[in-house]
Write a protein that binds this DNA or RNA. Structure first.
Lengths: 168, 168
DNA sequence: CTATCTAGACAACCAAGTTGTCTAATTTCT
DNA sequence: AGAAATTAGACAACTTGGTTGTCTAGATAG
């Protein structure tokens, strides 16, 4: 690892960009994707959908999940998971039913409206993805994704369930 | 559903990546940068620093700022800005002093510890940036940044003061 | 010189998380 | 089989970072 700060800054050949711009670019790009997703979702009748909802519904999975397990999957406390579950119920994306085998537990399941939202999201993401490919070129987009994955994987313990804390 | 890692490791331009992976990659990359920043900051005696603090201090600027103006710069209400200001004071990154010309107003100014934190952050970001360059190549990193900027700029009204809502 | 506008404080509230305590149901262990 | 330990989920109180709404005091425009 090369960390000769004074020297390597001087004859570093390519990048004029300062280090702090990178996180800004990443966040802005993320925001732009998510904002567009929700703008489109709103146009298709899912005005109440928020970024966490899609993520949570994904964690619910096609087979449904108990509250506690949802908490584990999302990396939050079961109390927080219970609130999320209630929210998903309130906006009609999930329902609760008693667990067939465990008398303490309840199963949270996606409703068809929840499934619809997920399907729509997938479509919109694909469309955005194609638009990016059109703007910067499919090869560049591929490189971008490959590189992001490589760099992220190498450094981070980033357990994906850790993400929701960053969504609102 | 799961990424075909074996195939995408090869540099071929065959992207079967689904659209929804892109935002995940962006968020994971952002998180990895920010998490590492704060891990390093903590090692240098800034364990209380949180992502918003650096952003807010940046908005304070070298000349200082009033609470209301801080709110405007960050894109939040002045009440929220007042809370942020109090937090910055509490952890020793800023101080409040009466405004010389306006009897109603107060000026929030960075302390030397605040300046130190910013300087440290810049260093750490630069180091991370160089590490990325080492991992994926400076040309690829340059392309990545250029592309992110291009795609983001084209779509978004992304007023930068809008960002803090996404930081915790 | 009044009328309006603005800075910032205070309060009540919201949203999404946290911990801590509790009951009831299920497991596990002897 | 029965006691002990674990687990599911509810309820409550608190934290953080935001929001409105109301207020006073100082600045500014007519």
């Amino acid at each position: 690892m090369v960390v000769d700060t004074a020297k390597s800054r001087h004859d570093e050949q390519v990048t004029q960009r300062l280090g702090y711009e990178l996180p800004m670019l990443l966040l802005a790009a993320f925001r732009s994707v998510v904002d567009e997703l929700h703008a489109e979702l709103a146009l298709s009748g899912h005005e109440q959908a928020r970024p966490i909802d899609g993520f949570a519904l994904q964690a619910v999975g096609p087979a449904g999940v108990t509250i506690s397990e949802l908490g584990r999957r999302l990396g939050v406390s079961k109390q927080a998971a219970a609130k999320t579950a209630r929210r998903l119920e309130d906006i009609g994306y999930a329902t609760r039913s008693p667990h067939p085998a465990d008398g303490r537990a309840q199963v949270l399941t996606r409703t068809s409206r929840g499934e619809e939202m997920l399907a729509l999201s997938a479509e919109i993401f694909d469309r955005l993805h194609r638009r990016w490919a059109g703007q910067i070129g499919p090869d560049r987009l591929d490189a971008l994704e490959t590189d992001l994955e490589a760099v992220t994987r190498s450094t981070s313990t980033t357990w994906i369930g850790d993400l929701p804390g960053w969504l609102h």
